[in-house]
Amino acid sequence: MTDLEKIRRNAKQIMDEFVSALDKADEIKPEYGTDRKGEVRKPEKHDFPGFKEKILRNAPRKNQDYVIMNKKSW
């Protein structure tokens, strides 16, 4: 078994154990959510000077103004 598979199985085992423990809790309701009525993001104008240059500086592969995402992969 590869290391990757070992780690995946270990992770799944931990998750199954944890969820089995949750089975012990009575009253588990299937749905839970948060009421955030009234908490709505209001759009605002933003300015990011030099953003393009900074993005291109981080890109592993680029061609002038373009970030190269997939080269010859299709």
Binding site: A11, I14, L22, D23, I28, Y32
Partner: peptide, 22 residues
């Protein structure tokens, strides 16, 4: 890998939804 595994369609969110309920 654990997050990828338990979010697969075959488990129908059993782990995540139960954890949310807890």
């Amino acid at each position: 890998l654990g997050g990828e595994e338990i979010s697969k369609a075959e488990y129908r969110g059993a782990h995540y939804r139960k954890a949310l309920a807890a």
